[in-house]
């Protein structure tokens, strides 16, 4: 593990960032908009940015023997670690719902989104939006996180609403597939979500580095 990620995990992070990974378990809830679990995971990450600001973490990090833009890298690495840990948990539960629990009546009678690869793809998209809108927005000033977080909340819930509504549109029922139905399409959508996550994260990281270099700490 590199020194910056170690610093993020041991000094900068709020304990809530780790605990809120557990919201990935919401993937098990029947009759619930399970994408909200993704939002709660990012809420835990937001707490780390809040506690880091109170601890003068950004200036402390910039004084360490690292390039100034590496401070941004540390924040992105930590956020991705939490996001991908939560994603792994959600993926395991999704697999459980697609196999062992595939015939469970509480899931079969679910009017909301099923846990399937499309759900995982949207989860990755929301994590990507957090990185782009919140973290990218935070590094425009390196202290103001209120506006970026409110912007992220709006984008996040619009995405959740759209994802929940889409499978009710005639012709798009395959988005809400059970078990391994429409598996090729489902995996394609998951791949699309993964690509969007990678693109949003990478592009916002580059922009955040550029902005952070210009900031006066």
């Amino acid at each position: 593990m590199n020194a910056l990620l170690n610093k993020e995990m041991r000094l900068s992070a709020s304990i809530l960032s780790y605990l809120f990974i557990g919201f990935g378990l919401m993937t098990l809830l029947p009759g619930y908009p399970i994408l909200c679990g993704v939002f709660f995971v990012t809420l835990g990450l937001f707490q780390s940015f809040q506690s880091a600001r109170e601890a003068n973490d950004i200036v402390f990090s910039a004084l360490l023997p690292v390039a100034k833009h590496d401070v941004v890298k540390g924040k992105y690495q930590f956020s991705m670690l939490i996001e991908l840990s939560a994603f792994l948990l959600m993926a395991l539960i999704t697999l459980l719902r697609m196999t062992v629990l595939a015939d469970s009546s509480v899931y079969l009678q679910n009017a909301l989104m099923n846990a399937n690869p499309f759900f995982l793809g949207v989860a990755l998209l929301i994590f990507g939006l957090f990185n782009a809108v919140f973290i990218g927005g935070f590094f425009k000033t390196a202290y103001n996180f209120g506006k970026p977080f409110v912007s992220y909340i709006i984008v996040c819930f619009l995405t959740i609403c759209a994802a929940e509504a889409l499978h009710h549109v005639p012709g798009l029922q395959a988005l809400n597939a059970f078990g391994f139905d429409h598996f090729a399409l489902q995996m394609l959508l998951l791949l699309g979500g993964a690509l969007l996550y990678a693109a949003l994260t990478w592009l916002s990281y580059k922009k955040a580095c550029e902005n952070f270099e210009k900031i006066d700490l």
């Binding site: 610093k7 601890a55 003068n56 360490l64 023997p65 690292v66």
Partner: peptide, 26 residues
């Protein structure tokens, strides 16, 4: 090395925790 008189880093972490991380950079 840089030192300033007024700033407080990581006020709720122990000195040991802060130093354990800081030393890994040097």
């Amino acid at each position: 090395g840089y030192s300033t008189g007024t700033v407080s880093w990581y006020p709720r972490k122990t000195i040991r925790q802060i130093v354990d991380v800081t030393r890994t950079f040097y």
